[in-house]
């Protein structure tokens, strides 16, 4: 099975690579449209700022490549936000795979949300064989609103989409590569799709 991590200018993809290697998978890091299209599974990671990341994706033509993929695609952290329609982070128009708005947390609690929080109302094959309301690791200041695509929720300031799913597109706001055994199970579940 070939797993490609979309390698664009959005922070550190090393942790995701290591996490997959711990699961016995050797991922390919690539920004080449042909290599991405031919993968069995595509992971779309991201740490960074939404408008910069989107500009970079557009310049490389990767925005259209990602939207057109038919195999299972897994957006992680900023990857989830970029798969939404629009982000309040520097008013960025995003990929629009999910017709969902990304908003900034109101500063009623500390922002960013940094640390371990629960997944609730899980409803996706991504979450097979997990304990009830498992903990995952978050670092984010922006969140995707609840929507018809929401397949897990987390509560911080307000309830938000911890995970989204539509057709072959899956996305998680938390960092599975940093979420201990729970994160490994989620990654492993994605690889089994």
């Amino acid at each position: 099975m070939s797993v490609v991590i979309v390698n664009y200018n959005a922070g550190n993809v090393q942790s995701v690579t290591y996490a997959l290697q711990r699961l016995g998978v050797e991922p390919i890091l690539s920004a080449d449209p042909d290599i991405i299209r031919s993968a069995d599974k595509v992971i779309f990671p991201g740490v960074g700022e939404a408008s910069t990341a989107m500009n970079f994706l557009r310049k490389q033509g990767l925005d259209q490549v990602i939207e057109s993929l038919k195999q299972p695609v897994f957006g992680v952290c900023l990857g989830l936000q970029l798969m939404c329609k629009h982000s309040e982070e520097n008013d960025a128009d995003c990929l629009g795979i999910f017709d969902v708005q990304v908003r900034k947390f109101e500063p009623k609690l500390k922002v960013p949300q940094m640390g371990w929080n629960n997944l609730e109302n899980m409803n996706s094959p991504l979450f097979a064989d997990l304990p009830e309301e498992p903990y995952v690791y978050y670092v984010h200041s922006y969140y995707a609103e609840l929507s018809e695509y929401t397949v897990a929720e987390t509560e911080y300031v307000n309830r938000f989409s911890a995970a989204l799913q539509k057709d072959n597109f899956y996305a998680l706001q938390a960092h599975p590569e940093k979420s201990g055994k729970v994160g490994e199970q989620i990654l492993s579940n994605f690889l089994k799709l």
Binding site: Y18, Q21, R22, H175, K178, S179, E184
Partner: peptide, 8 residues
């Protein structure tokens, strides 16, 4: 450490 550890 990064290769081995699954927490931040």
């Amino acid at each position: 450490v990064a290769a081995e550890i699954n927490i931040p």
